[in-house]
Design a protein around this nucleic acid. Sequence first.
DNA 1: TTCAAAACTAAGCAATTGCTTAGTAATAAT
DNA 2: ATTATTACTAAGCAATTGCTTAGTTTTGAA
Lengths: 188, 188
Amino acid sequence: MARKKEYIEEEVIEKAMNLFWRNGYETTSVRMLEKEMGINQFSMYSSFGNKHGVFLESIKCYKKKAKEELIDKLKQSTNGVEAIKEYFYNFIEFSKDTKINKGCLLTNTVNELGEHADTVIMSEIIKFATGIKSHIIKKLESDEQKDSKTIVKQANYLMVSLQGLSVASKMFERQQLEDFIESVFKSL
Amino acid sequence: MARKKEYIEEEVIEKAMNLFWRNGYETTSVRMLEKEMGINQFSMYSSFGNKHGVFLESIKCYKKKAKEELIDKLKQSTNGVEAIKEYFYNFIEFSKDTKINKGCLLTNTVNELGEHADTVIMSEIIKFATGIKSHIIKKLESDEQKDSKTIVKQANYLMVSLQGLSVASKMFERQQLEDFIESVFKSL
DNA sequence: TTCAAAACTAAGCAATTGCTTAGTAATAAT
DNA sequence: ATTATTACTAAGCAATTGCTTAGTTTTGAA
């Protein structure tokens, strides 16, 4: 009855996501997306509505990828606090690019769009951050000695440190990042 | 012989700087700069060459302001490591805005432009970061017990933490930021 | 007062932005 | 084979981008 799509939406969104990850939202033009995704603007707009829609799906794609490559590993590990440290190191690998790292797409987005960021996108980001935090808390709780108050404080500390690692990975050398991670976990 | 300028370049640049600080480089258009600076585009271009030139001068203006309000205080203090902690707290006040903080203009810039950033601007940023680091090292050295190797490691740690604070201040509440700062300095 | 130099106003430039639309091609139930 | 439905191509839309330029006003030394 109708013609078939010549592309798989999930596949082209992953390409879009990588472009947004490298360049940010504003700097990524629809023409660039066209080329990278390998589809026409018409197809883009009929599949995802507008540039914003492409970005929103890219965010979801990123979350899925980060879940598979980072969060699931954290969840499965039985190493307690050491597992969180591994998460930090895994993140550096996860965000690797040509020489300079790409950071975390979600952190990049908040940093770029700030309060101008769409509420739907912001809620996606907050949900993700909340998820990571609760997993960190679980790992901290495996250390019996800690009371709940210090656990919350340490979780906050680790979350901000993670942000720091994301930004710093875009400008600092590997050694400095490792120094940072080691120092962060020395105090726990 | 010639007509007088109706504006003071230093004054209009400070206004431009505040706009860049709030919005970032790309999102700040020449029309917005026109309004905020209170001068015509022609004047802008004759004084500063192009948008990039306005930005470069804004960066210099930011560095000057940060020096006066943050770095000089750090330098003058005799509180050792405690002085660095005060620097962290002062930074939060320094970057305050309506509800959400603006972060550090230089960190924001690296984060936005990444490797696309102009080399002149990048060298300005690196010079600034190097300056802060050397001041931090001086304060760390006032603690006699530390050997030079741990001082370097701790300085790296504090620099990345500062980046983290900059980004986190754009999305987290005051309490979480304070928890972070306290945790950072607990381990030193 | 004259007049060249500099600073102003404002209109407009080409290029790029996100997005739309008119026309054509493929699909499969009828 | 016909036909309605959907997906494609590609041209083009208004709006905005950074920047320029033509023309006017101000200035102070000559």
